[in-house]
Amino acid sequence: MFKARDIAEPDTGGTIIHNIDPRTKVAILCAMSLMVVSLDNEKILFCLFIIPLFAYPAARLSGNKYWIAFIFIALGLWGTIFSQALFYREWPRTIVLTLIPQDFPVLGNITGGLYVYKEGFFYGLIQGLRFSAMTASGLLLCWTTPPQKMLLGLVKLKIPYGIAFMVVTALRFLPILLAEIFTVIEVQRLRGFNPLKIKNLFKGLMNTMLPVLANSVRRAGVLAASVESRGFRAYPDRTYLKDLRYNPVDFGIMAVFLTASTGIAAIKIFYGLYAGEILYISALRWVYEIGRYL
């Protein structure tokens, strides 16, 4: 069993992953997002998905973090594949399993038949791998970057201090919010109402939102008063106890990711122009070959 705190709170540690500059991590995340949007090949997307997973043992994350990552990724992957396999609307499509035949009384008429499509499965797999790669990378960023470092990183990336502070604080209070959601669900169950039953989902959601939101507003008020009392935005600028410095590892990682992401994006753009019969340059035939595979 894990506590809600485990979900968003970073592990304190001095591993090589923790020591990567937060700006580098943000750059990696941007590069990853560019790559997952550009790529369509499920095998390469799978490779991209496992890259951040290799960094997990290097970051010496606690066992609970592995479970949480597994749950997030498995749910996202399963949900995307399942929904796309069922509701794929493109042609051609190949039925691999019939859940409700078209001639099935009532339900068959209403749904027009419910089938699992092979093409939908693969389309869902690609979407799911995109989601999983970003989830695995995003969780690694959150779990290996202390809020103060993240705040400084965002400020150095020219994000306005007020906004950077809000982002970091929201992440800090996410576990408390989750713990409160679990409590309100339990309260309802103890009063004879199961909010997790499908027919109760909407009412349960409303019942849960009200106290959690009210409490969040109250907590936000206290936090605001607390930071204002400590001179928050007292001056247009501020000083910092710690400073961020890139080290050679940061430059190396950034070079690899930025080169790979811009390279893949460029290849896919040229390939798209070629496939759309907009632009053809014979010297770029090797690029089109790679683009077709990617």
């Binding site: 202390p146 809020p147 970091v168 800090r172 935005r233 001056y235 106890l241």
Partner: peptide
């Protein structure tokens, strides 16, 4: 809101540009 003790204490002085 900080994860480390010293970061929390430093918040005020940082805001006041110490």
């Amino acid at each position: 809101f900080s994860t480390r003790v010293e970061d929390e204490v430093a918040f005020g002085p940082e805001n006041l540009c110490f």
